[in-house]
Nucleic acid binder design. Structure first.
Lengths: 190, 190
DNA sequence: CTTATTTCTAACCATTCGTTTAGAAATAAG
DNA sequence: CTTATTTCTAAACGAATGGTTAGAAATAAG
């Protein structure tokens, strides 16, 4: 018995995700969110509570975008080769027509870690950490699948987690040629 | 024929450097600079012109802090081993009593690249790029010293530049144990 | 001591930030 | 049509941002 919303939460979060991805968390203002999402502040706050609320939804939207690539890795029938392909698949998602935006989760982790207001952003960082941990376990499984023992698989997974984060950062600064050099040598050593 | 300043530029820049290093560029406000540098805004602006001016001086201060480690690499009598030692030396500078701050230049590059106001920060990014380029050439020289040919030395230098940036980022998020795994495997492949 | 010049303090500037709110517009239920 | 409820517009909130400025305090030169 009231007026109806004239927008879908999923639609506007999709646009917010793209914006956060391109600009980062702090550098995305509520006014910019207003114009990009196409709804005004009242609607944003009544639907998502706060800027952080919008961002948390955007993080989930980003995980959905990524999930086909993750599932492809999970269901693959080889180890190292599948992980290397996963690196290339992720790199492809980082880059759009205009420029490379890196990985939203890696970007956010480097942006927010080290900020003093740790309590405020704890929920965001937990969400990201859980994905990183999931990814690491996937790497371990695949390396064990390739015949590695648990100890060396874990050590190599630590290496790969950091290498993958490096690709996100490097994609925004270095040429594709340099990044391909990086991926090549990364997988020549494990 | 006038009053004398009661502070040394070098002294206050030293404090500003520490602050920028810990907090990042955007997250360091002029008020915070005031209290940390121990002089007020008027003095800051009359000595350094702008917030960006303070930061540029801080970048040079940071390069000075780093220079013994760089010189040690430059004058070393071996190749790969010296680069690996350089990685450990740099990692040591990233960490103080409280926490790991990463590399000020890497931090700044990831913070400012991707921001739309590219023109404003161009001077800062140029300063950083020049150091990265210098570092890359040093890596190439050391690899050639170790008997590598120019082409493969360049490819491996691309790899090392990205790996070193990764260490800066990882030092703020990952455990020392994970980072040691990363450095170990990084140098096992080149 | 007087004067010219510089550094200091402290208040102030416009702008932007994330967030809130009063009231108009819309709509389903009675 | 009336009424209760929700969504909308648009203005405003206090706090914080980078940057400026008027005038007092200090000091070297004459």
């Amino acid at each position: 018995m009231a007026r109806k919303k004239n927008y879908e939460d999923n639609d506007v979060i999709e646009k917010a995700t793209e914006l956060f991805w391109r600009n980062g968390y702090e550098n995305t203002s509520m006014s910019l969110l207003e114009s990009t999402m196409g709804i005004n502040k009242f609607s944003i706050y009544s639907s998502f509570g706060s800027k952080q609320g919008v961002f948390l939804q955007s993080l989930r939207c980003y995980r959905n975008k990524l999930s086909p690539v993750v599932i492809k890795l999970k269901h693959s029938n080889n180890g190292r080769a599948a992980i290397k392909q996963y690196f290339y698949d992720c790199l492809a998602t980082y880059t759009d027509a205009i420029c490379s935006k890196g990985c939203l989760m890696s970007n956010t982790r480097t942006e927010l870690s080290g900020h003093v207001n740790g309590e405020t952003n704890a929920e965001i960082l937990n969400e990201i950490d859980s994905f990183v941990q999931y990814q690491k376990q996937l790497f371990i499984d695949k390396l064990i699948f390739d015949g590695e023992d648990t100890i060396s698989a874990t050590k190599k997974a630590n290496y790969l987690i950091i290498a993958k984060q490096a690709i996100s950062g490097a994609s925004k600064v270095h040429s594709l040629h340099e990044i391909n050099d990086f991926i090549d040598i990364t997988f020549s050593s494990i």
